[in-house]
Design a protein around this nucleic acid. Structure first.
Lengths: 204, 204
DNA sequence: TGACAAGTGGAGACCCCCGTCCGCTTGGCT
DNA sequence: AGCCAAGCGGACGGGGGTCTCCACTTGTCA
């Protein structure tokens, strides 16, 4: 990596880093539709600088989120290492949904770059999750008719909560996830408290 | 109403009606971001005609969806008339979510125009649903910690399923709703079959 | 049937976005 | 210290959106 980074002049490298940091901030706050000019302005550089480092907006998005994708994979790996399959399963869903609720650009970036990722990576993730599901079913804690496709269902549903202020989104997401996990499992326990959502919140 | 309609010349009235019909079609198919020019083209009129009848795109949206809003209110009224409170409750959620899944512009229009509706209407809808919830709880079929705010939660979550082909969205929505209703209730029965969702579908 | 108000459509003003071009600046090496 | 390639930023082209303006057409009523 020092090959591509250290080739850059010191100031250029610093700018590049600042651009990435700012991108992550703004994408998280306002979603991927934030204009390149806004990123440039907040990073204190010109638009041209952005495009010199990242030939396209999409490439910037991709770069800005690779870290998050790694986190995702780590979450699944960790879950597979958990001796309790249900806890692993639950944790994956909780953590990924939290990530989604916290970072407004995350899902969009996820679906946008998903087709571009080496299918190898996709396959691996999918396979791992499938294994998690099988184990959880085998342990009798996950309902038998749960489908791995339901993970996508959860992610998409949870994504519908984006667009409200972060704290609200997080609380709402937690309650949604709790409801769903309760359906997924054989058993019951207390939900997090209701969230006073209002459709007005979507306007912000 | 005939006051404002019959003032229009015959051809103008016909154009207006066709514009509204086309709007509903396109909003349902492609969401609210469909350009005014596209609506005009499909309706076989010029852009100016649109703007003469509907001073702003927002006003067109509002007009195009008032019918759907009426359907919503009707659904709730019908549910209140149902002697079985749980069935009423369940039906409201199922029907509204189906509406959402079928019509891509519906939710967007709903949240967009919600703040503009006479608060009288909002209050009434909200009040009715609250009553439905109370009755369902009293009958012991709805969990006690269900909050009316959870309706908004469901709507937002269900909205996250928009953007995939309609048939898929409907199937996914049905499964999501089934999962959630199962959580909301004290009891259990069979879910609709899993939906082979893929994140790729979002790209369409 | 003829006159005129009501109706019409397309060109274009204005704005916002992505991505490029080009003349100026500056870090880094000798 | 001085050179120069690497770096820089702002102006600009191209596309697409909402909404307006205006010269032309057409329904309607006497």
């Amino acid at each position: 990596m020092s090959a591509s980074q250290s080739q850059l002049r010191a100031d250029a490298a610093e700018n590049r880093a600042r651009v990435l940091a700012v991108s992550r901030e703004l994408f998280a706050e306002r979603g991927l539709e934030v204009p390149m000019a806004a990123i440039a302005r907040r990073a204190g550089v010109g638009v041209a600088t952005l495009y010199r480092r990242f030939p396209t907006k999409e490439s910037l998005v991709m770069e800005a989120f690779t870290e998050q994708f790694a986190v995702c994979q780590a979450v699944i790996d960790e879950a597979l290492a958990d001796p309790d399959p249900w806890r692993g399963f639950r944790t994956v869903i909780e953590k990924v949904c939290l990530l989604q609720a916290t970072d407004r650009g995350f899902t969009a970036a996820f679906v946008a770059t998903f087709p571009e990722m080496h299918s190898e990576v996709r396959e691996r993730t999918w396979h791992c999750f499938g294994e998690l599901v099988d184990r959880a079913k085998a342990s009798g804690q996950l309902r038998a008719d749960f489908s791995p496709h339901d993970l996508t269902l959860v992610l998409m549903a949870n994504n519908g909560l984006a667009g409200v202020p972060v704290e609200v989104a997080v609380a709402a997401s937690q309650r949604l996830v709790a409801y769903l996990l309760e359906s997924f499992r054989t058993g019951t326990d207390a939900l997090p408290p209701p969230v006073p959502l209002s459709l007005d919140l979507v306007l912000s």
